[in-house]
Every structure is written in structure tokens, then in C-alpha cells.
């Protein structure tokens, strides 16, 4: 029977100081591959609509005749399915997340 084993952990914890980051004063470090939000380089886009069809959460609307590409940021689940299928590679995944919002909003891009 061992008693007070946990004291070791408590003392260690006192000496070490916090392991957490002081967010939001210290910005969070993201990794190279983090899936944040979808970015589009609208000049390269050919408005084929493949991203709209492959999007599992139906967040993307592509209007070919108006040359409009629209994404509902709160519907997007950051799965990067659109980035994978894009034939001209105009879509990319940012490591930062989309800004917080209490309302549904859409980001529209027009070429």
C-alpha cells in the first residue's frame, strides 16, 4: 500500500508553472496541415461547380453565368473535400479558422 503518491504530482505541478497558453493574448499556433477555413483564388476559378456537388454539408453555391462563388461559413465543416476535387487547384485550406459569428453569414467572391 502506498500513501500520498499523488503528492508528487501536485508538487511537480506547482513547480512547473502553467502548461496552457494565455489565449487570446498569445495567439494559438497552428500546424502546417491544420484544416481551418476554405480560401479561394477567384481569378483561377472556372466555375465548374464540382466543389458544390462534393460538399457534404452543402455550404458552397457556384453560379456559373454570374461567375459567383459563395460559401456559408457556418455550414462549412472544414473537411477539405472541395480542395481535393478542385480541377484547377484554386481552392486552398487556410490554417486559421473562420471568424466567430452569432449569425449565419456568407462570403461571396465574384470574378
Amino acid at each position: 500500500m502506498k500513501f500520498l503518491l499523488m503528492v508528487k504530482s501536485v508538487v511537480k505541478n506547482l513547480v512547473r508553472g502553467p502548461v496552457t497558453e494565455r489565449y487570446p493574448f498569445v495567439p494559438k499556433k497552428f500546424f502546417k496541415g491544420t484544416r481551418g477555413q476554405v480560401l479561394i483564388e477567384i481569378k483561377k476559378c472556372i466555375f465548374c461547380g464540382l466543389c458544390q456537388r462534393k460538399c457534404p454539408s452543402q455550404a458552397i453555391v457556384v453560379t456559373k453565368d454570374k461567375k459567383n462563388w459563395e460559401i456559408d461559413r457556418l455550414r462549412c465543416v472544414s473537411c477539405a473535400a472541395c480542395v481535393d476535387v478542385c480541377p484547377v487547384k484554386c481552392l486552398a485550406m487556410d490554417t486559421k479558422y473562420a471568424p466567430c459569428s452569432d449569425k449565419r453569414y456568407k462570403d461571396a467572391f465574384n470574378a
Binding site: M6, S9, V10, N13, V19, F31, K32, G33, T34, R35, S78, A80, M93
Partner: peptide
């Protein structure tokens, strides 16, 4: 035992970092 709770989750955070680095989520 709150301290142990915190320690376990601190370790878990490192594993989550590995996961984020390799898969993106």
C-alpha cells in the same frame, strides 16, 4: 481528484497535437 484529471488531459493535449499535425483536425 482534480489534479490527476488535469494531468491526464494535459497529456491528451499532446496526443491531440500529433493528430492535428498529421490529419489537420
Amino acid at each position: 481528484f482534480e489534479n490527476l484529471f488535469m494531468q491526464s488531459w494535459r497529456l491528451r493535449e499532446y496526443i491531440l497535437d500529433i493528430i492535428e499535425e498529421t490529419t489537420g483536425g
